[in-house]
């Protein structure tokens, strides 16, 4: 990013001037919504729904908001989709660039701080309504544990423990995770909790998409462990979503 700032500043998100007035910038870009992350025994998991909205309209049913940042970390975002996607792309590039130049990986703290700096660069845009809030989770190779970092649009970085969520549906997802998350869960249990949390978010938040059984579109769920970033197969998520739907049907139609 420093190199870009020096040689091609126009390619950095923060350095673009916005035309004044005209429209409310918030309506320009579709909004991406709920992302959740949680730790489990031996790693960390991140999951995101697939919906992007523009006002009351659904802008995309199949957008992906959870990405590998590098081999040992995942990044997801809520907020302006265009800015968020660019932020992620630049972040991925930066981590890979560092790795190639230096011949070693950045520490997890280093990656988290880097993301905070990039986010701060986007502050002028955030002030005009194009805010993006990422969630960062990775496996700390030094401490042998999964860790989660949340951010605010001004670049504040906060380490979260056990689980966290961002985006419009996160209130409901976090409520679900509070009840469902257990210490010492394995990855499989964590996948179940994540899908259920997103299910709850989609249930009450119109901007979060639930499992779409007609189009076969399911949340993106990825785990990061000592073996690296691994995206859970869509078929597996479909199975879990189905299972959750069955459980709830049994429990009563209100839940």
């Amino acid at each position: 990013m420093d190199f870009l700032a020096e040689h091609a500043p126009d390619r950095l998100p923060g350095n673009r001037s916005m035309p004044a007035g005209m429209t409310d910038p918030a309506t320009l870009s579709p909004h991406a919504t709920t992302i959740v992350a949680m730790t489990f025994d031996g790693g960390v998991l991140m999951a995101g729904d697939r919906r992007a909205t523009a006002g009351n309209m659904i802008a995309s049913r199949s957008i992906e908001k959870v990405f590998p940042a590098d081999e040992y970390s995942a990044v997801g975002f809520a907020g302006s989709a265009g800015i968020g996607l660019e932020l992620v792309r630049l972040f991925q590039l930066e981590l890979e660039h560092y790795e190639k130049i230096e011949g070693s990986l950045l520490s997890l703290n280093g990656k988290a701080n880097r993301l905070a700096t990039m986010l701060r660069g986007n502050l002028p845009m955030a002030m005009q309504g194009l805010a993006v809030v990422p969630l960062f989770a990775g496996y700390d190779l030094d401490k042998d544990t999964g860790r989660i970092f949340s951010y605010d649009p001004t670049g504040g970085r906060y380490e979260e423990h056990e689980h966290h969520g961002v985006g419009s549906g996160s209130v409901f997802a976090r409520g679900a995770m509070k009840k469902l998350w257990r210490r010492g869960m394995d990855a499989e249990a964590a996948v179940h909790v994540a899908v259920e949390a997103l299910y709850d978010a989609a249930d009450d938040d119109s901007a979060t998409g639930g499992p779409d059984t007609v189009r076969r579109i399911f949340p993106v769920v990825a785990t990061v462990s000592v073996d690296g970033y691994q995206r859970i197969e869509s078929a597996e998520i479909a199975r879990v979503a189905e299972q959750i739907a069955d459980e709830r049907r049994e429990r009563g139609s209100i839940a």
Binding site: R11, L93, I101
Partner: peptide, 14 residues
């Protein structure tokens, strides 16, 4: 080498 990595990463990003 460093120049090459920069060249490649910048191209790939642009």
């Amino acid at each position: 080498r460093v120049a090459g990595v920069r060249y490649a990463d910048m191209r790939g990003y642009s």
